[in-house]
Design a binder for these strands. Structure first.
Lengths: 189, 189
DNA sequence: CGCGCGATTGAGTAATTTCAAATCTAGTGG
DNA sequence: CCACTAGATTTGAAATTACTCAATCGCGCG
């Protein structure tokens, strides 16, 4: 739980006493490779703070093709946020690609924390602000860049993920076929 | 200012007294057609709550092509949020397409309001949550749908904008050329 | 150790873009 | 209020780009 404390303190000041309260809302979960954190069509009970491991959230389109919504490693938050926030059945899957541990938080817990502690409401707002900005950059990249450039940007932004994640998933994240990505990749060297 | 009050009360309870305080942070601005709210490379002093009119925020890529980041009409919030939140020079332009009025809020004002009034921090968090979810849906659409489907989705989601906005801008929002959009449009009828 | 998943490569195809030109529309100024 | 003009839309044809399908190779997981 020390990681959680540091993670929160990074953004907002909380007392040790408050943290004792905060941490009761989180539960620890160990996750193995290939294990689902979220299954399509099922209820989304939690969002997850990744302590270790690598995960992917993806959407299956009408033709059964995967599209990566987000990756997540240490200190990233992850869920099917559309379903989580709106309390709808999941339209995505979240799967573990590298075993690790996560902290689980229910929407009810999140809202209670926000209501009871102004600092936590602030924390979640700041986190959302950052996530919003990151998403906007991704939209701009999808609209304006060719696959080549999107790939280069990704490699620069997430050198770590480049190493740890099969390239076919990166292709799905960037919105190109793996063959095209492969060709870009070899042309690039 | 009554619109603002209703807009906030939609999400969080505030007293009349609080609102008297809140409204001092907002300034009214009338905007004419073709007028810039935000200019590329300049400082982004405000975010805007649209009271009336239609606006577009767009990004110019390396080849000078426009890509629409978002549209905004009544009751939408709008800014160059990447620049606004991070206090960087604007990388986008925001232009009025239909004359109207907006309320302006500085980042400092936003943060002060959030700090002083837990209810306002809550308000901004909820707004961001909704915006985040909407953006995620757009990313999924960009990744998984062909232009035809993206166009249909847009038409269903924003029938109002379909009427009020030149189609070339809708093309730029969807990430297709206007010619392609035009062909989809005529094939569709 | 072997099997399966991931990566690569090739060839043909489908889709969208680009360029160009004609037509239509709506905003502007007189 | 009308006429004019710049902007918006449509259409055609060629060119580009990425996709699909298929086959092979290689490596790491179980």
């Amino acid at each position: 739980m020390e990681k959680l404390k540091a993670h929160i303190k990074d953004i907002t000041n909380i007392s040790d006493e408050d943290f004792e309260h905060i941490k009761t809302f989180f539960t620890l979960k160990k996750v193995k490779r290939h294990q689902h954190l979220i299954q399509e069509d099922e209820q989304v009970k939690f969002e997850f703070l990744i302590l270790s491991g690598v995960f992917r959230a993806f959407y299956l389109d009408a033709s059964g093709k995967e599209h990566i919504i987000q990756f997540a490693t240490e200190n990233w938050w992850l869920s099917d946020y559309v379903a989580y926030f709106k309390q709808l059945p999941a339209s995505t899957n979240v799967i573990c690609m590298e075993a690790g541990e996560v902290l689980c938080l229910t929407l009810e817990g999140r809202e209670k924390l926000s209501e009871n502690l102004h600092g936590m409401e602030h924390f979640f707002r700041v986190k959302l602000t950052n996530a919003y900005v990151a998403q906007q950059k991704r939209i701009v990249a999808l609209l304006s860049s060719n696959p080549q450039k999107r790939f280069e940007e990704f490699a620069k932004l997430y050198p770590d993920l480049m190493q740890r994640i099969p390239k076919k998933y990166i292709a799905e994240y960037l919105g190109v076929s793996r063959e095209t990505l492969s060709r870009l990749y070899s042309a690039n060297k």
